[in-house]
């Protein structure tokens, strides 16, 4: 039974995803859009995860700045990596959904625009991490960028929303209860998937750091040790 004890989160997640998938496929179809509307059960939960993951990154960033504990940096980085995947998924799913419904892949809906920008903010954050070699410097710079971005994201959203509301009325409409329950189930399933992935990624990050430490023990060199006496002899009176 150890496998159940060690893998309970995975097992629960697979079960919830299964139920959510079944529900998404069998729940009554949307009256106006038909079956294509079912993509909402992927699109909306992905978008939710995109924002959740970035919030976790911000929390990790702030906690690192306070404590300087590398575990918080690992949390921020791992969450951002998962976040960028789900942000991409939300955008692609949204475009697939939009094409048959609106006749085009893209609309300038505020949440869509914000999600797209979030994708690039994530990419920049990860590119910054990749460009800094020293772990402490990387953590510090990434934490600052993570927090500055997090402060700006709500302003980004409100500015697009505001702009949009001036140009056309909001297209938000209420959805029926069975559909709403299915959507909620999808959100729960995706959140569990996030937790599983995050746990795995954190474990991987920890192992990477251990490996680095081991490598360091074996290959450590003291400054100056790589420079030896020159073998080129001097021949002053040749």
């Amino acid at each position: 039974m150890t496998i159940v004890r060690n893998r309970w989160l995975e097992i629960v997640t697979v079960a919830i995803i299964g139920v959510s998938l079944f529900r998404s496929m069998t729940v009554v179809a949307d009256v106006t859009q038909g079956d294509v509307q079912r993509i909402m059960y992927v699109h909306v939960p992905s978008a939710w995860l995109a924002f959740l993951a970035f919030m976790v990154t911000m929390v990790g960033s702030a906690a690192w700045l306070r404590t300087k504990d590398q575990r918080w940096d690992r949390l921020a980085a791992s969450s951002a990596e998962i976040g960028v995947v789900f942000t991409g998924l939300a955008i692609v799913a949204g475009m697939i959904w939009a094409k048959p419904v609106w006749g085009q892949f893209w609309t300038w809906e505020p949440r869509l625009v914000t999600t797209a920008l979030l994708f690039f903010i994530y990419l920049g954050y990860l590119a910054l991490r990749r460009a800094v070699i020293d772990p402490v410097q990387r953590a510090r710079r990434a934490a600052i960028m993570g927090i500055v971005a997090a402060v700006q994201i709500p302003i980004v959203y409100y500015s697009v929303n505001w702009w949009r509301s001036l140009h056309q009325p909001s297209s938000a409409r209420s959805i029926d209860t069975p559909l709403r329950i299915t959507l909620l189930l999808g959100v729960v399933a995706f959140t569990f998937a996030y937790a599983v992935l995050l746990r795995r990624r954190l474990e991987l990050a920890r192992l990477e750091e251990e490996l680095d430490a081991k490598r360091f023990e074996q290959s450590q060199s003291v400054a100056g040790a790589d420079i030896t006496a020159p073998s080129l002899a001097s021949h002053p009176h040749d």
Binding site: G124, A127, A131, V156, V160
Partner: peptide, 25 residues
């Protein structure tokens, strides 16, 4: 945050442009 990074000329605009949307709006 990009000081002394070799690729700063590409990285800095990537960090700035998405966040500058409210200024553009």
């Amino acid at each position: 945050v990009t000081t002394s990074i070799g690729t700063r000329t590409s990285l800095t605009p990537l960090l700035i442009v998405p966040l500058s949307l409210p200024l553009l709006m």
